Computed example of a mutant assay.
Amino acid sequence: MLNRHVIRGALALILLALAGLGAWLYSLPPAPALADMPQVAAGEIEAMLAALKPPRRKRPLVAVVGINDATETTDYLMPTGILRRAGVADVVSLSTGPGPVKLFPALTVQADATLARFDAQHPAGADYVIVPAMSRDDDPAVLAWLQEQSRKGATILGVCAGAKVVAATGLLDGKRATTHWYYLQDMLAKHPSIAYVADRRVVADRGVATSTGISASMPMMLILIEAMAGREKAEAVARDLGLASWDIRHASQAFRQTRAFTTTVLGNLLAFWNRERVGVDLQPGMDEVSLALAADAWSRTYRSRAVSFAEASPAVETRNKVRVIPDVASAGQPPAWHLAPFTDQRPAQALDQTLQAIAMRYGARTAHVVALQLEYPWGALP
């Protein structure tokens, strides 16, 4: 999704520059140092945790919803994997209809249930509904279902550009929110009553929470775990993820479309003869969060695309029972492919190491392009 929009935007910007109308692109102020991110008052965190307390069940029910044709990879798999490894809630992955969920930009999975089956099994609704970015913001089945879940008392969490889907339901009208930097202005233009909150990775307001870009679903889930089960549990899960600490601070101005971003994307697109398929070897019990981050990152370079493979099998079950359907059935690693490493690492390390590997293979600018799409504060953003 973001890739397609970036391509269109990059082509438009280069045409403007060639016409002598793109000088504004070169005069943007420098990004603030990530160390200078605004501090968060203790009262703000306490209010957020209170807002995210389980509304009904002692052991909450969490639904992660996706559409079958294109749902963002990390937005869908990271919340599912993190919440399941925490063991503090029942987590169900959903699809709008039968059949596999094609994730974007990489991987295909089998959801646990359809919306209709979930409704039949849980007529009182979920405690929380997590909404990833989707290829369309106006899927009628998703919008109607989210409105009904909210009416039944569920807290709705829009991850990344999933905030645009939540906004399309009307549930963000008159509320404070955020979203991925690339889609922010579009969301505000369509829903002007939304009050944008800068410099926060997560914002909660009256039954709805939203986050900034893709990587923000990790701190968002840790905050949700803390609201469900306390700080000690959240810290234990964070250590398991490879995080020493986390919070909701964010340097919003560090994430924007710059000259370096645009020219790198265009350069990689123009090198169309030099594309790689990055083989991701699916293994039973592998970490689905690390898998999602690595496959997502390798598929955002504009030089490569992650392709999953496994020995002939309808699906490979990950550590936390996510069923991943391989793109290719193979008895062994295809020798012509460059294997994406680090899918067996702790997620925080897997993302950093994947970005480092991308920098080694395609250059630091391409790695920064990936980090910017993931809205991940990796190194000094150009």
Rank of each mutant, 00 (worst) to 15 (best):
G332C: 11
S27I: 11
L77Q: 14
T108M: 09
R231F: 03
I214S: 02
N68E: 13
M78Q: 13
R201Q: 00
G81C: 12
D112T: 04
T343E: 00
G170K: 07
I82W: 08
A126N: 08
L171E: 07
A42D: 12
T73S: 12
S304Q: 03
A10D: 15
T366L: 10
L11S: 11
T262R: 06
M360F: 14
H5M: 15
T262Y: 13
N3V: 14
F118Q: 12
I325A: 00
A295L: 07
N268Q: 15
T155P: 04
S290A: 07
G267S: 13
V316H: 06
S252A: 01
A31N: 03
G153T: 10
Q283V: 14
A120F: 10
D344G: 05
L25P: 06
E288W: 06
A380F: 05
L224S: 07
D137I: 15
A198K: 04
V202C: 12
A144D: 07
A380I: 13
M360N: 11
A42N: 08
M134G: 12
A359P: 05
P192F: 00
V328F: 00
P192Y: 05
H368V: 14
A163H: 11
V280P: 00
S27Y: 09
A154S: 09
A116W: 05
T301W: 13
F272H: 02
V197I: 14
P54K: 11
M187S: 02
P38E: 05
E232C: 05
P38G: 05
T73W: 11
E44A: 10
L15G: 03
P341S: 14
A168Q: 15
Y183V: 06
T354L: 08
E311N: 11
V280Y: 07
K190R: 03
E311K: 13
R176C: 06
S215F: 09
P55Q: 13
Y128F: 14
V109Q: 00
G230F: 08
W246P: 03
A315E: 10
R59W: 03
L282S: 03
S27M: 12
R256C: 00
E311C: 09
L339K: 10
V237W: 05
V64W: 09
Y302M: 08
P377Y: 05
T264P: 09
A357T: 10
R56N: 00
Y302S: 14
P347T: 02
L188T: 00
I358C: 09
V159T: 09
A195Y: 05
S135T: 10
Y182M: 11
V101S: 00
H338P: 10
L49P: 07
Y196C: 01
